[in-house]
Write a protein that binds this DNA or RNA. Structure first.
Lengths: 185, 185
DNA sequence: CTTGTTTATGCAACTCGTTGCATAGAAGGA
DNA sequence: TCCTTCTATGCAACGAGTTGCATAAACAAG
C-alpha cells in the first residue's frame, strides 16, 4: 500500500488536486513510483473518507473547478508510523530479462532491435534526469544551500541517474553479446 | 502476463513440477521475476488446460508424487509470438525512495538503520550472484565454451550483478547524506 | 510416539493495478 | 463550425498479485 504513502509525501511537499498529482506521477515521483489517474482518484477518495487528508473546493476561471487536497493531522501520523516500519527490498520484475533468456529458444539476433529501442529510451530518460538535476540542484539557477527536503529529493534523483547509467551500460553488454552470438553460432 | 512467459522459458530450459519452479523462482529466475507457489500452480493449471504445456504424472518413492510439466508445441508458438512483440521499459516501484523523500517530514536520522539493513541485504545478494557466476560461468568448474542459452543466462546474471553494485553504491550515498543532515541541521 | 521439516499441491478471499469508457467546460486551429 | 487538445473527475470490469489456510506423505530428531 505504498501508493497511499507516496501520495501523502507528495501532498506534504505541496498540496494539489488529483489531476496535479497525476502530472507529478509522470514527472518526479514517477521516477520511483508509478500510478495512473484512476488509482490516484480512488486512493484520494478513500484517504479523504478516512480523514487522512482534507479537501478544499477551488473554483477556477478558464478551466474546470478542482479539489485541492492537503494532509490532515491523521495522515501525518499514519505516514510517520509507516516510516518507522521496516520494508523488504523490492521484488524485481524485469520483462526484458525474461525475453533475453527466452531468445535462446528463438532467434537471438531478432532481439537486437528491441534492445536498441530500450537503450534509446533509457538514454532519453537519463538526459531528462540530468536536466532536472541541473535545473533544481547543481545548475546556476539552483538554490545555493539546499534544505533537508531538497537534499533528500536530490539523493533520490541521483539514484535514478545511477540506475539509468547502469542500465545503459548493461544494455550495451547485452547488444554486444547478441551480436557475438549472431556472427559466430 | 509475463509470468506465463517466464514459466515457459523456465520449462524450456528444463521441464519440472510446480514445486520445482517455485524453487527456481527463489533462485535464478527470481533475480528478474518473482512469483509465489500459488501464482505458479494457478498459471500452470491454466496453461495446461489451454494446451500450452503437457503434464506427466511422476510417481516417486520417499516423497509425494509430482506432476512434471513440459512445453507443448502451442506453448512454443505463444512464446515466439511474445518474443517478437515490443514491450515498454519497466515501471519503477521503489518503496525505499518514497521513505527517503518522506523522511523530510519526520526524522531523517531515524532512517539510517533501515538503509543500513538494505545495504547489508544487497551486499549479501551480490555475493550470492558472484558465487553463482563463478560456479556456472567463470570458475574452474564452469564449461570452457558456453552455448547460446548459457551465454544469455550469463548476460542476464551480469545485469543482476551490475544492479546490486549500483544499488550498494547509491545506498552509501544515501547514508552519507542522511548522516550529514543529522550532524548539521 | 509425537513433533517438526521437506516435498508436493491446491482453494478462497482479498487487495492492488490496468483498461476502457464517460462526462464536461474552455481554448485553439482548420 | 467542427474537431482536437487540455484540464478535471469519475465508474465498472477485469486481471494480476498477496495472504491465509488446508491437505498429505515421508523422514528425522527428541
Amino acid at each position: 500500500m505504498a501508493l497511499d504513502h507516496a501520495i501523502l509525501v507528495s501532498l506534504l511537499e505541496k498540496p494539489g488536486s488529483g489531476y496535479e498529482l497525476a502530472r507529478r506521477f509522470e514527472r518526479s515521483i514517477g521516477y520511483f513510483w508509478t500510478a495512473t489517474h484512476q488509482q490516484i482518484y480512488r486512493v484520494l477518495k478513500r484517504m479523504e473518507s478516512d480523514g487522512w487528508i482534507d479537501v478544499r473546493e477551488v473554483p477556477q476561471q478558464s478551466r474546470p473547478d478542482k479539489k485541492e487536497y492537503s494532509v490532515a493531522a491523521l495522515g501525518r501520523t499514519v505516514l510517520a508510523e509507516w516510516l518507522h516500519e521496516p520494508i523488504e527490498p523490492e521484488s524485481v520484475r524485469h520483462e526484458l530479462a525474461v525475453k533475453i533468456r527466452g531468445a535462446a529458444f528463438d532467434d537471438p539476433a531478432a532481439l537486437i532491435r528491441e534492445v536498441e529501442r530500450h537503450h534509446h529510451k533509457h538514454t532519453e530518460r537519463l538526459a531528462h534526469y540530468l536536466a532536472g538535476e541541473r535545473r533544481d540542484f547543481t545548475g546556476p539557477d539552483a538554490p545555493e544551500a539546499l534544505d533537508t527536503g531538497e537534499e533528500l529529493q536530490h539523493v533520490v534523483l541521483r539514484g535514478g541517474i545511477a540506475y539509468e547509467r547502469m542500465t545503459i551500460a548493461w544494455l550495451e553488454d547485452v547488444l554486444a553479446t547478441l551480436r557475438r552470438l549472431g556472427t559466430a553460432p
